[in-house]
Structure formats: C-alpha cells, structure tokens
Amino acid sequence: MSTLLEVSGISVTFDGFRAINNLSFQIGSAEMRAIIGPNGAGKTTFMDIVTGKTRPDEGRVIWGEKSVNLLKMSESQIARAGVGRKFQRPTVFEDQTVLENLIMALKNRRRPFSVLGYRRSAEDVGRVEVLAEEIGLKAELPRKAGELAHGQKQWLEIGMLLAQEPRLLLVDEPAAGMSPMEREQTTAILVEAAKTRAVVVVEHDMEFVRRLNCKVTVLHEGSVLAEGSLDHVTANQEVIDVYLGR
C-alpha cells in the first residue's frame, strides 16, 4: 500500500503556545484512520495544516505519488489536488438549495470563466442524483439547505465532500449531534468511502471509533502519543493517564 500523505516533523507555535510539536503522520491511499485525543491535543490544527489554512513553523507535508509539497500550495490548490475536509460544525450554504450545494462541490473545472460558462449537463445532474440517493437527500434536492435538519446538513456536507471526489477525506467529528440511526448510516458511508480512498476521522466518541474498526492515532500536546488498533491504544498506560488525568 503506497503512502498518500506523509507529514513529518511539523511544529506550530501560536504566541508561545506550541499547538503542534514535531508531529509525524502517514496514511495510505485507501485507508481509514481515526485520530483521537483530549482537547487541545492539536487535532484541528493538524487538519488546518494539511488543508493549508495554517502554515507550520517547520516540517514537511508530502502528497501523492509525485511527492508534491503541500506547504507551497494555497487552500484551493490543495483542495483541487484531492484533499477534502468536513468541518466540525456543518457548514453548507444555507441560502442555496441542496442541488446548488452539490453542483458547486461536484468535481469540475474551477476557474471563474469556466464556471461562468457552465451549463448543467445531464451527466452532472445524474451524478448529483446518485450522490443524493447515497446520502438520503434525493427528495430534498430543491429545498434550501438552511431548512434541513441538523443530521441532514451533516450528510449534505459529507455528500459535498464525496462530490469533490477527493483522494483524502479529513472528517472532523461527523457524528456530533446525530441520532444512533443516523450514526450507523454515517459509519456506513465512511467505511464505503475508505475502500477507494484515504479517510481520516477525528472523533471524541469511542463507540463511534470502535465501529469504524480501523487503526487509531492518539494525539497529545501536539505529538503522537500512541498508534495502533483501538484495543491496543486504550490499553496503553500513557493514553489512560492522558484521558483520565494523573
């Protein structure tokens, strides 16, 4: 299994506070990974760095077979290179319809003038319908995203993520605020996605992580504390100390 993303030795400091401390991390091209860690462990900052929102003070982020340096690219370039991100809070464009949201996310040319001349082809609409089916929002396509229930918004966002056809999905707490039924469906979507691409899930909920049934990385104070199966890491004394306090 080839490596898709390789992060090595990155550090970030905010006003003297070390949010990420010499962190290294790797993920293969079709792999599911869960990242857990207490508050302030640097999970969100880690995602910020990979997606280009935050520049690290040192370290390297290497992407893909051609070993591209992600640190030299802008957010939108990274997104076009195949990194998709789902935020903690559902962020969909509430003022626009579900269809418009998905069309916007659909993998297509992104330059302003191409978009200006864009016409919805039957093929694109077909792709959107298949996606909507997958995330259970087919009936909601003409509705405004703002009218959806919280869980539906989460799915819409996952749907938008999938529409981008990324090679790496960064998912921040996808199950927050979902009912058990919805969680199950979310798990299914993610597991399905991980068959063809890399998926990194940041999650607090151990039950949800267990259901994902994947390798787990534990972050603490900006660096990797432990890595391995969930059972392996939860047996680790250091991890127990960090989570339960000393």
Binding site: T51, K53, S76, A79, F87, M104, A105, R110, M160
Partner: peptide, 15 residues
C-alpha cells in the same frame, strides 16, 4: 457562497 462562507468555498477548491 463566498459571501456566506469564504473559507468553505476555498476548501471546495475554488480560488
């Protein structure tokens, strides 16, 4: 989308 959430549009890959 840019008006409502600039960062989100950026992460969708739009410049």
């Amino acid at each position: 989308g840019i008006r409502d959430d600039e960062a989100r549009v950026r992460f969708l890959g739009y410049h």
